[in-house]
Design a protein around this nucleic acid. Structure first.
Lengths: 228, 228
DNA sequence: TAGATTGTTAATCGATTAACAATC
DNA sequence: TAGATTGTTAATCGATTAACAATC
């Protein structure tokens, strides 16, 4: 019984927050059941928002009780596909790429990076966190052979588009892009951007707005409008 | 002449995309002026959306011509505060933290990480990408003394809240959080989350939806509604 | 002048918030 | 039963998209 409505991106991004909080409650072993109100209180979020998000996953709760804690955790896990391991390839074995290769927590969240690729001859042939680093040219064939569906890009910005093209050519269906680049991919490919400069822009603008306001109180009324 | 309306988060996050594209045009040296339609075309975005975003920054263009390319680049830079260098401290000199310390591009985007902190005795006292790694306990005093306003958290999730508390105590006004943790900070503190699991949830869910649809065509109509 | 583009106002869309009915 | 919580429907809010007027 899957939902018939589109799932809002914002809701999807909140589910991990609930998931983590619920897991903590579970290991703490305090309660058997949890209500949306409980969850909202511990997270400082709007109770109605939490209710809608949980409801969206399709789980059925009991009025006056809430949701069985363990069930809810597993339900969210399953809803997100975090209980079904999917392979991934990573391109760009630099410092960020290596950090990502070192995150073994990804495995318990549905993703396992099975191979790394790079163009640097100094890196090719060696191992990085246990994974062999192969030449980028070997990527499309590797993807086709192993049927891996996820591609992670951790290259410099100017290499990202060509890497994405290679991934798509190999049959990758989802790209997680950490490179500072605006990628063009076919419609059937899921693109998740993790461009740090998007966040840095937001942070920088807000910080400037607030510190400037403090300096020139006469502009206060205007600046208030810019608060998030 | 600053805008009187609140600036949408989504618009702020699109500005770096325009900025980068405009910079490329500038170095390519092709055109003197650029229109929103041009920009929208090269980026594959809705022209009206681009217009609204650019307009929001307060720059004034010329009908039939567009915006002077060099002016627009500098305008966005200034709007985001990327031309005014702000100091930052980083906590957590692990693999991700080290990668962030190595990003010298941050400096040309308004942020310079001036010091790193950690609790690991094996890291304290050494240098990481030229920056001294200090004990975490030294953070509040350091922040007070140097008047740094930005704090970057790259610790494990369970340490993040206490680190955030230390930062706030020292006078940090903006926190860039890379740890997988839902942080509670006072209202006056800007919080920018870079939680990878938020993105991974979205990517994983969408990938599962699409691949499952392919397996069971009879559910196609339902699955379509879940497309982004 | 004609026409493309900016600047601005209105309409649509979707997400969040609020209200209320159902239920254990 | 009474009351808290789920489930569901309506209202609000904000962002995106569309329409149109102003201008060079």
């Amino acid at each position: 019984m899957k939902p018939h409505h589109p799932i809002p991106e914002a809701s999807l991004r909140r589910l991990p927050v609930y998931y983590r909080s619920l897991q903590e409650m579970l290991t703490a072993g305090a309660a058997q059941a949890v209500s949306c109100a409980d969850l909202a209180r511990t997270l400082g979020l709007d109770p109605t928002l939490v209710r809608k998000d949980i409801e969206m996953t399709g789980i059925v709760g009991r009025p006056r009780v809430g949701y069985p804690l363990a069930d809810l955790v597993r339900w969210i896990e399953s809803f997100l596909g975090w209980n079904r391991l999917k392979g991934a390839v990573l391109v760009g074995a630099g410092s960020l790429g290596s950090a990502l290769l070192g995150y073994d927590r990804f495995r318990s969240h549905g993703m396992e990076i099975v191979a790394a690729f790079d163009t640097d001859p100094g890196k090719i042939g060696k191992r990085n966190h246990g994974r062999p680093v192969q030449p980028l040219s070997a990527l499309p064939d590797f993807v086709r052979r192993t049927q891996v569906l996820i591609g992670v890009i951790a290259t410099p910005g100017d290499a990202a588009q060509s890497v994405a093209d290679l991934m798509v050519a190999g049959g990758i269906l989802a790209i997680w892009n950490f490179a500072p680049a605006h990628l063009h991919v076919p419609k059937h490919v899921i693109l998740q951007n993790e461009d740090l400069y998007h966040s840095l822009a937001s942070l920088s603008f807000k910080l400037e707005s607030r510190t400037r306001r403090a300096e020139t109180p006469e502009e206060r009324e205007i600046s208030y409008a810019q608060d998030n």
